[in-house]
């Protein structure tokens, strides 16, 4: 199997803007629509960030890693076929909780993970604020707010790809229960390893 360490696999619930974000990152032309289930197969593209070439794969939306239909099956297969890949989990900032189920499943699988909090503009419009710092601290992976529509955060996200983290799910559980093994450091460090 080819080296997949420079592969970025985009996963997320249906209709969170994976394909729109994929197009932003790669300049690709994946079909984008405003209803779920648009992507039923995957699209590949290339992103060059800081001299580093990444192969980006836009997977169909899935609610979990236990496939329930053919499109979900493609997404689940992609994650098994690219074991070393960085998984970019795309969450809808207006419905963060819903996407966390899949995010936690991906973390549990032991993949290096980075989270894009997409549709942050829509969240702002609806006066939904997400404390990315706390989310980052609990999950232990970088969380980057993005808006694929306006392009906001896309550059930050590309720059943060190399900082994706593998996290032990039990430590996430402990932190979610308020047990932090290291005291919170000053200077804005969230312990995500992003530095």
């Amino acid at each position: 199997m080819a080296d997949t360490s420079r592969t970025v696999l985009m996963m997320g619930n249906p209709n969170v803007g994976k394909s729109a974000l994929f197009n932003r990152l790669t300049g690709g032309d994946a079909v984008v629509s405003n209803y779920p289930g648009t992507t039923v197969d995957y699209t590949k593209g290339v992103l060059i960030e800081n001299g580093q070439e990444y192969e980006v794969i836009d997977a169909p939306g899935t609610y979990s890693l236990e496939a329930r239909d053919a499109a979900e099956d493609v997404a689940v297969r992609l994650i098994s076929e690219n074991p070393g890949a960085t998984v970019l989990v795309v969450l809808d900032a207006t419905r963060v909780e819903r996407g966390l189920y899949l995010a936690l499943e991906v973390i549990e699988r032991g993949c290096p993970v980075i989270i894009a909090l997409n549709m942050i503009d829509a969240a702002r419009e609806r006066q939904i604020t997400v404390d990315t710092r706390v989310l980052q601290r609990i999950l232990g992976v970088p969380v980057v707010p993005t808006s694929a529509v306006s392009g906001e955060g896309a550059r930050d996200l590309a720059g943060m790809l190399r900082k994706a983290q593998k996290v032990d799910i039990e430590t996430v559980r402990a932190r979610a229960d308020g047990q932090f093994d290291t005291p919170e450091q000053s200077g804005g460090c969230t312990g995500c390893g992003g530095c």
Partner: peptide, 8 residues
């Protein structure tokens, strides 16, 4: 549980 949980 799993099917319903992942749907929220």
């Amino acid at each position: 549980q799993h099917e319903l949980n992942c749907l929220g």
